[in-house]
Design a protein around this nucleic acid. Sequence first.
DNA 1: TTGTATGCGTTATCAG
DNA 2: CTGATAACGCATACAA
Lengths: 336, 336
Amino acid sequence: MTHPTIEDVARLADVSIATVSRCLHTPERVAPPTRERVLAAVRETGYNLNLAAQSLRRRRSDTVLVVVPDIGNTYFSDILGGIERVASAQGLTMLIGDTRRSRTREESYVRHLVNGRADGALLLIDPQAAWFEVPAPNAKGIRPIVTISEVAPGFANTAVMIDNVAAAEAMVSHLIAQGHQRIAHVTGPSNDILTRERMRGYRRALATAGLTEDAGYVIPGDYSLASGRAAFDRFLAMANRPTAIFFANDESAMGFISSANLAGVRVPAEVSVAGFDDIHFAQSCTPALTTIRQPRAEMGAEAMRVLLAIIAGEAPASVCLPFELIERASTAPPAR
Amino acid sequence: MTHPTIEDVARLADVSIATVSRCLHTPERVAPPTRERVLAAVRETGYNLNLAAQSLRRRRSDTVLVVVPDIGNTYFSDILGGIERVASAQGLTMLIGDTRRSRTREESYVRHLVNGRADGALLLIDPQAAWFEVPAPNAKGIRPIVTISEVAPGFANTAVMIDNVAAAEAMVSHLIAQGHQRIAHVTGPSNDILTRERMRGYRRALATAGLTEDAGYVIPGDYSLASGRAAFDRFLAMANRPTAIFFANDESAMGFISSANLAGVRVPAEVSVAGFDDIHFAQSCTPALTTIRQPRAEMGAEAMRVLLAIIAGEAPASVCLPFELIERASTAPPAR
DNA sequence: TTGTATGCGTTATCAG
DNA sequence: CTGATAACGCATACAA
């Protein structure tokens, strides 16, 4: 038999389908002898629950939708790991949507949620589609959404994140404390929320220290290795070079360092470099990268917990996780 | 209304549910005026198809299950990107299972397949669970499985991969051609198929060149940065140091290079280093890493295509994709 | 403790 | 071109 159903099992065990169902879900409510018989029939037929039918009947899918902008990016996949951990511990499966930064594709995932394919969603993107255009978020019947890291202010009612402004400020303040006076910043892509927050932190640190932001010291980037390399070219061409550069993420910082090494510009002797994220390879570049560690797996896990809580009926609440400044070899007091 | 069904739409448009369904799937078979009316009703009610019901009725889920050992690993997530691309182009969604190398968790994903949650599976793991214990693979009603890269011989009937033996052999032969005579190899984890294949390629290249494998030149590793670092310590302690080392993957090679840089051992002047995979950061380490490029995204995409073909009724067939030797700065002829 | 019967929301068959 | 209606496989309220 290709696809035994609950009925086949019932027939074989000579019970009703109700009893079979009970054996599977509430075995304690069925008499041991019957139970044995049913279980044997299950084994013999090779029966498997049809999840579509179950989902239809139960009106829930035991699935969580996770939407990422780029699954190939280790920053996101680390978060996914954390999500998966707690999701699977709760018997939920994770449905991943990769938008590749296209709004159209994002919209197709909105449908998944609303189509009942998932019981809730975790967003690792800055929402462009109409995720929240639902009456009374988290009201009865509405599937809850939690955003991670990329929070458009006032958009998400529930989010888990770190304080990006404070983290950037901490890093730049640290550089200042080391004695740096001329500190540049390579940003993320211009439409990114995190870009804005980290830049704000950078400026706040400068302001607090009474430093002025030199012209040309805010260099546009896009988080990529290539943009870090481009930043190095800008750096080389500068008349009044900064003694330290704070990058909006590790990857671009690593691109810069790679170019610097190639060109014989010594880091940190000639220029200190700081990143943001503490990705896996930040520890293995030469010199090892000073950066801000985001607890990515924990952010994913926590977001999943929050989502579960909301599904269970609790009130939505945002949570802010601590970051950590990791000092490695790429930063040092400026030469004088 | 929290959850309008097809019936609500039908009532509003004053047609039967059959007509509504037709409007959604075969609009050309319904008279334009009726169609307009129905579509308007759909918009007004905010109707969304219930995928569980559809899946139950159609007996397919339009979902593909992808099983990975570690979603946080960029090697795998790059493949996922390729899969996602063609899957979504075909209207399939991707359900990701992360086994974290636990057999128990792997088994739970087998159930997904067999439970009808997915129409087929793509395996990025070396299968431990009973994936293939199904009568007549790919027979009618059996959900097809395609493995990527990690093929246990005789296990998979369908796989997409590169020729790991040939690739490893090519790399080691290249080192030999550069003039290296003493070449070590840092392996992957011992139970890994790829470990065995790459080691075989290493040995074959040595044999072809008439070189003997020096004692202690096969150093056990596990693909991690840490194991690369450990390999560096082994290297330092050697009386008769190799002039080149071929690593079973990039990450461990990068761990070695990182330690070497720290210790002041110059790469490639004192020792050439070659990796395998060409991960994203292989280009940005110092020196940039010579390696074998696997077309990861393309492997994922191709596997998805193969799976689709099988689902469509074609005969299963394995495909072997080309690799490429990428020469960068971490290898050079030995000093003499 | 077990069985009966209904409905979950769709699709598809078959008449009209 | 449109409408009834019968499954799809399961869970559960209600009866026995």
